[in-house]
Design a binder for these strands. Structure first.
Lengths: 98, 98
DNA sequence: CCTATTTATGAATAATTGTTCATATATTCA
DNA sequence: TGAATATATGAACAATTATTCATAAATAGG
């Protein structure tokens, strides 16, 4: 996330984060409440490592926050703004995609 | 664009289209009015071929429409809905990206 | 017609990105 | 402390995607 990139470049970078099936699935899971890494991993039937790698990117873009609880790490959607963007997407997908 | 893909998969596919710098730049150019392929190519300082390949994808997702005019092809944003999505992005980018 | 111009496209290549595999780190509990 | 559990991470590999290069197709003008 270089600071000198222009606004379009930053915007496309942002869309790119949502433009991955795994990451969007993770975000969707978290819309219904925070979860531990292993819960996400089980729900999506994907390896813990793959999930962890993608969570790192979601963290980098401040789309999720996390909280250490014992051995586990609890992830949730960062704030209502991110939630709004996601819900906008889910609600309008039918109109958007032909 | 397979019909059997679930909604999240389709949504991520949709975001992916916006998640490319070249495509988003093309869309941004077209926000200020339709243009010919060579005009886009010159404005973005990119090869005609690269632009044409990306226009094909934008066409596939119905984000742009085109019209043959003599030897040239005139491209423009498909409709006000697409325009709205783009303007939402440009307007909110500051809040979205930290 | 023939040439110049504009756009599209297939194939090859380059670049980027996601997943796996192996392992490190951190924490809990016996 | 040692074993078990949960998560993170680097490197290798696989997969995907963007660009270039060469060329085809379509049209306009001489």
């Amino acid at each position: 996330m270089n600071n000198n990139m222009d606004i379009i470049s930053k915007l496309s970078e942002f869309y790119k984060v949502f433009g991955d099936n795994t990451r969007l699935n993770i975000l969707y899971e978290l819309l219904n409440g925070g979860k531990y890494v292993n819960e996400i991993s089980e729900k999506l039937k994907m390896s813990q490592s793959a999930i962890s790698h993608q969570l790192k990117i979601l963290r980098l873009y401040n789309l999720v926050k996390y909280e250490k609880r014992g051995q586990s790490v609890y992830y949730s959607i960062t704030d209502e703004h991110v939630r709004g963007i996601l819900e906008y997407g889910f609600d309008h997908i039918e109109e958007i995609i032909k």
